[in-house]
Amino acid sequence: MSCLQTIADYGLRSLGIGERLLPRSDFTLCQQFTLIGSGMIWNIYFGIFALAAGFLLATALAMGKASRHAVLRKPAEWLIFIFRGSPLFIQFFFAYFLFLSLKGAVPAFGLFTSAWAGALVVLFFNTAAYSAEIFYGALLSIPKGDTEAADAYGLSGWSRFRRVIWPTMLRLAWPAYTNEAIFLFHATTLVFFSGFPALQQRGDALYYANYFADKTFNPFVPYPILAGYFIILTLIVITSFGLINARLNRHLPSDTRKKLRIRPQIIR
């Protein structure tokens, strides 16, 4: 079987399109590359949607935590503490079984017992909590002069937030937020190892890498392939976030800009 044929058969296998059975014996390098690459679709899907939705909630949470009113501050603080203080792995398990029990009462929750929705919800809250902490830190380090200038111009309320506080907060938080994004993409590999089932073996990249390692008893091929894919993904994330960083800092002289320092963490 030629490699092109393999790509045609397994390229979209993680979405359930193509060959139904996974290869069982005589594994070729091409099969491993194709299937693990196919699994990356899920990692990218989870990463992008959780980041996009989490960004909005994170901004709200950061503003909430910085608020003077306890009604806004307390819930934000608790949400951040709960999602930052416990392992993501346990959160996945808990959420899965929570949705499973809720499904018994309200059938509509059946949707969330599948990975594409349920795990996305968990990742969304998780990244929102971590990003909120980053944004909160940035919010506290906004130079006093900036807000005073905004006051002097007569800006208040929404326009003060939109024109001065929010852009400055993002500018300060962006390097740390880039790390969070990289880290979130790495965390997506946990999904199919927690409670969420991979229906008909439609899993993510690590799921397939693990499948090959189990079948061949040889971890030295699939995991480096996986690592290679993730390094490429990380480079793409760094590049695109770097472009946004340049845009956020475009008014500053180029030598005072905050450089992106990439320091990926491990597990959350």
């Binding site: 190892f193 690590l206 971890p219 996986l226 690592a227």
Partner: peptide, 9 residues
């Protein structure tokens, strides 16, 4: 090297 992959490997 990305996180859990390292553990499994």
């Amino acid at each position: 090297v990305p996180d859990i992959a390292f553990f499994l490997f």
